[in-house]
């Protein structure tokens, strides 16, 4: 079955392992992720001011392109693209004046933006369409004895109207990993912000966030963390270098995209090229558990 798919910038750069593993995993599950044509950056962060519609154009233009291509939905992997596209669509379509103004701004486009394209996160597709029962049947290498902390961060659960699960007590990632044979652990800091883009101007803040989040996972018994946001992955994984320098007692922990571990469990294996996109060695724990 074909699924129209919006990748976003970072999946073509620092998070190629996310895209690569997701495509592979979906193939194993008999779905084809078809990249939409002519997409651009979604704008990354949603702009919350009431008056500046220009800042919504990056997202809206992608949705317009999808309408042009007769797509009725876009599957999104990156939590941030998912969140920003959803909020931009709502902000523009729920108010007719905004919708008209945005179309005026895009007067050179061939069609009018109407807001007909649904935005769906891959985790929702896995839960509602593929179903976790079906995934369980397809497991070749159960992730038995692997204790996984699902890190949701902000963008999969806030604002609550776009939460992919309960916004305060989600279980979708834990449930997915249970179906893969792992032990999905709901650790206390799983919904806490990683510091996001502050990683540039306030590196010390993100280092402390990483320390607190990984330590919380460690205390709860996790051996690895999974995420679906390339910015969370950057802060939680790459920033462990500085975190170790800053906090002597800090113990590093591997951080995976959820699809990388799905690939291992579903027989798609581990791709060596993914390793170099990680800071904390991801292979070590998989070897220890006899998974690769």
């Amino acid at each position: 079955m074909n699924l129209p798919y919006y990748p976003g910038c970072t999946l073509k750069a620092n998070a190629e392992n996310f895209e690569d593993s997701a495509i592979k995993v979906m193939e194993i599950l008999d779905y084809q992720l078809n990249e939409m044509k002519d997409w651009v950056c979604c704008g990354t962060v949603f702009s919350m001011t009431t008056d500046d519609l220009m800042l919504q154009l990056a997202s809206i233009r992608n949705l317009l392109r999808a309408e042009e291509q007769n797509l009725n939905e876009l599957v999104v992997l990156c939590s941030m693209c998912y969140n920003t596209l959803q909020r931009a669509k709502k902000f523009i379509t729920e108010d007719e004046e905004n919708l008209n103004k945005v179309n005026d701004l895009m007067y050179k486009e061939n069609i009018r933006y109407e807001g007909t394209v649904d935005i769906v996160h891959l985790l929702t597709v896995l839960k509602d369409r593929v179903t976790f029962d079906k995934i369980k049947e397809k497991v070749k290498k159960p992730l038995s004895s692997l204790k996984i902390g699902g890190y949701y961060g902000c963008l999969l659960v806030r604002p609550k109207e776009f939460a992919i699960d309960d916004f305060e007590d989600p279980t979708i990632i834990e449930d997915l990993f249970s179906s893969l044979g792992a032990d999905g652990i709901a650790f206390p800091y799983r919904l806490e912000c990683c510091g996001a883009y502050q990683t540039i101007t306030k590196k010390d803040v993100t280092i402390k966030r990483t320390y607190e989040i990984i330590s919380s996972a460690r205390r709860a018994g996790c051996e690895a963390i999974v995420t679906s946001c390339p910015l969370c992955a950057f802060n939680l994984d790459q920033r462990q270098k500085e975190t170790s320098e800053e906090f002597v007692e800090f113990e590093q922990m591997p951080v995976f995209y959820f699809t990388e571990l799905m690939s291992v469990a579903l027989g798609g294996g581990w791709n060596k090229n993914w390793t170099k996109l990680h800071y904390v060695n991801p292979e070590q724990i998989l070897k220890e558990k006899g998974l690769i």
Binding site: G8, C9, T10, A13, N14, A15, C41, G43, T44, V45, S47, L55, C78, M80, A196, Y197, Q198, T199, I200, T201, P230, L231, F234
Partner: peptide, 11 residues
């Protein structure tokens, strides 16, 4: 830095 951090911070 990944594009997601740069574009987000610029905006």
């Amino acid at each position: 830095l990944p594009p997601i951090a740069l574009v987000g911070a610029f905006r």
